[in-house]
Design a protein around this nucleic acid. Structure first.
Lengths: 215, 215
DNA sequence: TCAATAACGGAACGTATTGTATCGTAATGG
DNA sequence: CCATTACGATACAATACGTTCCGTTATTGA
């Protein structure tokens, strides 16, 4: 609030946007914001997200971990949620594979998927955020595109396979994608374990071939 | 809500039970603990678990919701965790089906599974608890048998199918169980939606038959 | 019937943590 | 070198936690 007041008092130059300019720009006098502190805050947020989860994460804790005053955080993010969102958004996506074979595409992409999940903090952070989702619509909305982005590569893999005639036209591609990722989700959320890349081969084989004995 | 059903339970004989040792131990003098308050507390705990999740649940909120003093709660449970555990443990299990056919068994059990998940508070509560799991070992231990109990019926269904020769000996039964439940887990955690019984048919068909076109 | 006992709901306790405001200092631009 | 803004640190009011103390109520044994 004080931030708005102060900004209003100095409104003489053409500050076209209301968007918080992180630094200088138009009427940029005074000390610029430390990009170093900015990154330290985001890093600390991610670390704490991994360690204690979303609900137990406090802005004070982030400030302490980042070696930064609380005001420095509140000057940039209005509350804990946008901060977490931005930190979470820093996590890398994962590459897609197009080898011309459905089986290879799936296995390679899934391996990347898992490596990503385990190496990055995603595997530790996502359950915490997902758990909060039901009780926090705002967070839910922010999480939606992330989850969607994780699913899309698999959907595209199946689309290509269908174009090549590898799978029937009748196969529900969205369901197929969920089927392949499913066991990983089960492992992560229901069983509380860490999904291993070793799971990938058997999963894809079983999902593609089916559980029933081939006649 | 399912609260009505829960409230329906009666245990008139609770007065003199010594097993509970809830009342005055040796010299059973003094006012007995109200079994009614006990149940009201558990019900309120479950309700709040659904509404606000595990981390945002407070004993004060439970007391208020149950129309009970906080002391009444702390007299029975030392902290929030055991209270949540007992409340969570009240949720019903689900029935198993043995029709002699793998497909029927799976579809029927899955439907019961989903109906249970949606009707009871499980679908709303489980993600919240699962999210907390990584940062709360004590809670994780509690959750383990519950998750296991949910998986076992499916494992048994596949075991019976294998004995009947419906599926090959080489099929990893645990993986098959995860494959069938997987899309539901994905829907629940990744996509944040409510799994519908309509999903059951396509899921089972695709998982049994496989994604690849049958030759 | 009545004292003894213990649980009851409600309220007050001290502590911890939240988001915000204020301090003196540091850095940049005119 | 002066105005301006961000910096880290700290102080602040408000809230909410778990705990404990109330006067009251229900039950038992003498």
């Amino acid at each position: 609030m004080a931030q708005a007041e102060r900004a209003e008092r100095t409104e003489k130059s053409a500050r076209g946007t209301k968007r918080d300019r992180s630094n200088g720009a138009a009427g940029s006098t005074g000390r610029p914001r430390s990009e170093e502190a900015h990154q330290a805050i985001l890093d600390a947020t991610l670390d704490l997200l991994v360690e204690v989860g979303f609900s137990a994460l406090t802005v004070e804790g982030v400030a302490q971990r980042a070696g930064v005053g609380k005001a420095t955080i509140y000057r940039r993010w209005p509350s804990k949620l946008p901060l977490v969102v931005e930190a979470f958004g820093q996590l890398p996506g994962f590459d897609e594979v197009d080898s011309g074979s459905l089986e290879t595409d799936l296995k390679e992409t899934l391996k990347t998927y898992l490596a990503n999940f385990n190496a990055s903090s995603l595997g530790a952070v996502f359950p915490s955020l997902a758990g909060e989702r039901a009780h926090n619509p705002e967070l839910s909305k922010l999480l939606e595109p992330v989850a969607k982005g994780r699913r899309e590569p698999f959907v595209r893999i199946f689309e290509r396979a269908r174009e090549r005639g590898e799978i029937s036209e009748e196969v529900d591609i969205g369901l197929a994608a969920d089927l392949v990722v499913g066991p990983i989700s089960v492992m992560l959320f229901f069983r509380g374990g860490t999904p291993s890349p070793k799971m990938v081969g058997p999963i894809v084989d079983l999902a593609l071939g089916g559980i029933l004995t081939r006649r």
